[in-house]
Computed example of a mutant assay.
Amino acid sequence: MTPADLSLTVLHAVRRAVDEGALRVDVPARVKVERPRGGGVGDYASSVALGLARPAGRSALDVAAILKERLRECPGIRAVDITGPGFLNFSLDGDSDGRLVREVLDAGGRYGYSDALSATRVRLLPATEVRAALVTETVLRLLRAQGADAAVGPEGERMAVLAAPADFSLQALGDDAGRWALLRPAAHDHVLAGPPLLVQHERNPLFRVRYAHARARRLLRNAEQLGFSAAYEERVDAGPLVALLGDHPAVLLSAARLRAPDRVARHLEAVADALLAFQHTVLPLGDEKPSAAHRSRLALAEAAGAVLAGGLSLLGISAPDQI
């Protein structure tokens, strides 16, 4: 069960509770699930019960208990626990990581695309200032990736962004570095200094993101030379990497809803850093023979590379196979 699957499962439980008369609330459009915070347990958690408590006229603990009864027998969920004032915590079955990796690899660069905004029509005003124009273009791409009917129109909303300095030149930096300089900061922040983004060094976040993608591709080529390929066969310790891949669809959706490409850029930095920390475990060392663990780690690295490539594509930035 992926985070997106879990979100829909919880939403169906809310709808079922309403249909059965156990809750009297409007069913929300979506339910957010995320990694448990301090005091939480399991693989994922949701605060949906806290949000429904007041309109339902019940305590959050009561709402959580009602939903728990409708969730604990669902396929893919091993256990449901209630913590704190009413957080639902989910422990998934042992192959949840494998399903996530396979979902990413099946979708490739389109992992995280959805029809969540298929009923949404968005019109953005055309912009001439370089940063506003680029943000508008990127937001349209993000919205369409979530199924929205999005276009530039004369009566649309204006993208409120802090303008680039008068001497900023997209051409001088090159398309990739220039786009990162304009899109990585939040709309109310100043654009990034251009020259540091041209340096191939770990202090350069754009370099780290693109280099991490290139490393994922290199690992696949090296593994082929060693006679094995990617296949997620057993759960492996990958630090935060799996969680970050699972969070990717929610990041893309929130970036589209909030008109915030910087959220995608920040997420890609986190994925890149996690992959670069993980990469050293992927290939066999010395006389070590390739094992199921190596094949699983390679599949995870390949999935991370797909997420990086897809995210960069949405920002209009290239993802080279070699750096």
Rank of each mutant, 00 (worst) to 15 (best):
L198N: 06
P165Y: 06
R158S: 12
L206N: 09
A186H: 12
L183W: 12
H188L: 03
R203L: 12
L173N: 05
P185A: 07
A193H: 11
R158D: 12
A172P: 04
L192I: 07
G194F: 03
E202C: 01
G194I: 00
W180L: 00
N204E: 05
A181L: 02
L182Y: 08
L192D: 05
L182D: 09
A187R: 15
H201L: 01
R179I: 08
H190R: 15
L182S: 11
M159V: 15
A160V: 14
P205L: 07
S169A: 06
V199Y: 10
E157Y: 10
R203P: 00
G156Y: 09
D175L: 13
R184K: 13
V191G: 01
A166P: 00
R158A: 14
V199M: 13
R179D: 02
A186E: 14
G174L: 01
P196V: 08
A177P: 11
L162P: 01
A172H: 04
A181H: 05
N204C: 02
A166C: 03
A166V: 14
L198I: 04
L170E: 12
G174V: 13
A193L: 12
P195T: 04
D189N: 07
L206I: 08
H201P: 00
Q200P: 00
D176W: 02
P185G: 07
A177V: 06
R203K: 07
A186G: 14
L183A: 11
L192C: 00
R179F: 12
N204T: 01
L170F: 06
P195A: 02
L162R: 15
L183E: 04
P196A: 06
A187I: 00
Q200I: 00
H190N: 09
D167L: 13
A187Y: 07
R179S: 07
D176F: 08
G174R: 04
L183N: 09
P165A: 05
L170H: 03
A172C: 08
A160D: 15
M159Y: 01
A187C: 09
A172Q: 10
A186Y: 09
G178V: 03
L170I: 10
L198F: 09
V161M: 04
G194N: 08
S169K: 05
D167Y: 00
D167V: 07
D175E: 14
H188W: 13
E202V: 10
V199K: 05
Q171F: 09
H190V: 11
G194E: 01
R179K: 12
F207K: 01
A164E: 07
A164Q: 03
D176H: 00
G178D: 04
R158C: 02
V191Y: 05
R203C: 07
D167T: 14
